[in-house]
Simulated assay, not measured.
Amino acid sequence: MQLDARIMKLCYDEYLRKCLVKAAEAIGISKWGSPPDGAGSYNDEPEDTDFFCRCGDYNRPYGRFFLNWYSQYLIDHGDRVLAKAKLAFGDTPISVKLPGIYWWYETNSHAAELTAGYYNSVNRDGYAPIASMLKKHEAALNLTCVDLSTVDEQKDFPEAKVDPEGLVCQVLNAAWDAGIPVAGENALPCYDSEEYDKIIEHVKPRNVPAFMRLSAFTYDRLNQDLLEEDNLKEFQLFVKRMHGNFSPSIRYIMLLC
């Protein structure tokens, strides 16, 4: 759960450095053509760094310029990839997986998301631009971590300022606002009813319009433990609950991988 500023290694690629230099020169501030200093290293927490701390450089003019360039470059790359995919696959539905990076979500900077290229912080919604790009290509958004409980995760990792449910809620709202379908999958192995209850709470919330329900769910991390008698019975019940009592326009697809 530590901060890994080296995730920004993309910015140190020879060609990306040139792009950053050009972006800085385009706004007339050539000294901004370098990745940030003071972003810390693998074992640093956000408050231990100059860039990600509460009043850090991430929310100052250079930091905002850099993070906007960094995230937009990745979104533009996704835009180009999806354009090629649509040409190759035609009308075949396409789903784009969005990792659930929920550690440090309760800090101002959301440092883990920033280092991964998601420009999402306490004062900026980083998922709306992604959802808008997916809408352009009529692609679904596939979100991980719909199985996680914030209370449980905070109990296990109190120092990491996690909030997986807050992240799920934000991403779902971005997708609904953009009018794109959402799929989901679990981040960790699931075997008991409490974990399955959390999944169903996100996938099939009660008393909401059909568009606010997930269109598909992937059960990830199939392993030998799942096939043990008690675990398999719980899973069978989960599958029945997922496929029961849903709107005719919604189809729940259980994929084992």
Rank of each mutant, 00 (worst) to 15 (best):
residue 191 Y to H: 11
residue 178 A to M: 02
residue 144 T to R: 00
residue 173 N to T: 15
residue 107 T to I: 02
residue 37 D to A: 03
residue 193 S to G: 09
residue 189 P to S: 08
residue 141 L to S: 01
residue 137 H to D: 00
residue 214 L to C: 10
residue 5 A to P: 12
residue 15 Y to N: 11
residue 142 N to K: 09
residue 153 E to R: 15
residue 231 N to G: 07
residue 244 G to L: 11
residue 156 D to R: 15
residue 217 F to K: 04
residue 143 L to F: 08
residue 30 S to Y: 12
residue 11 C to V: 07
residue 79 D to H: 08
residue 156 D to Y: 13
residue 141 L to Q: 02
residue 120 N to F: 00
residue 174 A to W: 03
residue 207 N to R: 13
residue 127 Y to A: 09
residue 49 T to M: 01
residue 71 S to V: 00
residue 26 A to W: 07
residue 82 L to C: 07
residue 124 R to K: 10
residue 83 A to W: 08
residue 214 L to E: 07
residue 213 R to H: 15
residue 125 D to G: 15
residue 230 D to E: 10
residue 19 C to V: 10
residue 236 Q to L: 11
residue 186 N to V: 10
residue 242 M to T: 06
residue 4 D to M: 04
residue 238 F to Y: 08
residue 217 F to A: 04
residue 182 V to D: 09
residue 85 A to I: 12
residue 199 I to A: 02
residue 113 E to V: 05
residue 191 Y to A: 08
residue 35 P to F: 12
residue 155 K to Q: 13
residue 229 E to V: 13
residue 244 G to A: 15
residue 43 N to Y: 13
residue 181 P to V: 12
residue 75 I to Q: 00
residue 5 A to R: 00
residue 172 L to V: 14
residue 196 Y to A: 05
residue 178 A to Q: 04
residue 254 M to L: 04
residue 149 S to G: 12
residue 180 I to D: 04
residue 85 A to G: 04
residue 24 A to Q: 12
residue 36 P to K: 04
residue 117 G to R: 02
residue 22 K to A: 14
residue 116 A to C: 07
residue 59 N to C: 07
residue 135 K to R: 15
residue 8 M to H: 03
residue 119 Y to M: 04
residue 29 I to E: 09
residue 220 D to N: 09
residue 97 K to G: 00
residue 16 L to K: 05
residue 126 G to P: 07
residue 175 A to Y: 00
residue 89 F to K: 03
residue 198 K to L: 11
residue 183 A to I: 06
residue 13 D to T: 13
residue 209 P to A: 13
residue 231 N to D: 03
residue 3 L to A: 02
residue 146 V to G: 07
residue 243 H to F: 11
residue 255 L to K: 08
residue 216 A to C: 12
residue 101 I to K: 00
residue 185 E to C: 14
residue 152 D to L: 11
residue 166 G to K: 08
residue 24 A to V: 11
residue 178 A to Y: 09
residue 108 N to E: 00
residue 255 L to P: 00
residue 43 N to P: 05
residue 60 R to H: 02
residue 26 A to Q: 14
residue 16 L to G: 07
residue 224 Q to P: 08
residue 17 R to P: 12
residue 84 K to G: 00
residue 157 F to S: 03
